[in-house]
Amino acid sequence: MKRRKQRILMAKAMGVILTVMTFLILYVPILLILMLSLNDSARGYQWEGFTLKWYAMLFLDDIMKDPIVNTISIAILSTIISTILGTIFAIGIHALEKKRRVRMMVMNNVPVVNPDIVTGISLMIIFSILSFTLGFSTVLIAHVFFSIPYVILNIIPKLKRLDPNLYEAGLDLGCSRIEAVWRVIIPNISTGILTGALMAFTMSIDDFVITYFTSGNEYMNVSTWLYAALAREGRNSFTPVAYAYNTIIFLLTIIIIVFVNTRKERKVRTHEKSTCFTP
């Protein structure tokens, strides 16, 4: 018995140690980026004191203006488009009979499993066959393309949990087919739509590989701009404004997600409360 206890204790200790290691390996680079954004040195070879000037430059200086504007506008537009399309497609896929639904989901998951580099090259090739000029529109299409599967994957489980008669109840009470989707289905899968949209946004804003292959020479987002700067001049060639930008986007994402999650939880909790009061 004593030996068993010892073994369990050891297993637990191992779990704790490995978890600490995991968080170290994930967070050390993040902390370093944070420090670099606060470091009073353009080259960043060593710590030269605290400053906020890179943050000020981010807003006052034009140095990274174009890539930042591009990144944010692509992220917002592709999130909106892929969320709308993904929601419609998910509802359609869910309505299919099982065999076809599974087949559609298998196809849906191709871009999820496929390595980014393969997806990027596939898109680049189709764009050149269709003789699209690489730039804003091709990057937007590419981002919509890789976001839709994630939106669908987030929505399908919510649809599965719905009572299949719910939509018909809407029709029965006087909705047209489209009205019933809007008034009955959408409100009941809204959490799935929201998490899908958040996922699409976070992936678009940080994407490098797919943008790299579909943006051409002129159009750049922050990632491809950084890559070009590194390739052009080698190490330490870009301004610490990039660290400041990344830190702000990073914190913004955390704030949005925390906000959305606490709101969701509060909703659930008020629900539970009223349940408690049921006689």
Binding site: L32, I33, Y45, Q46, W47, T202, V222, L226, N246
Partner: peptide, 26 residues
């Protein structure tokens, strides 16, 4: 951590693996 830019994270590793860097400093 996945929400931080991939290139900058790679670049941070680059700094960490350099013998004399801000990482050494800190």
């Amino acid at each position: 951590p996945l929400w931080a830019n991939m290139l900058l994270r790679i670049f941070a590793w680059e700094k960490i693996f350099t013998p004399l860097s801000i990482f050494t400093d800190l």
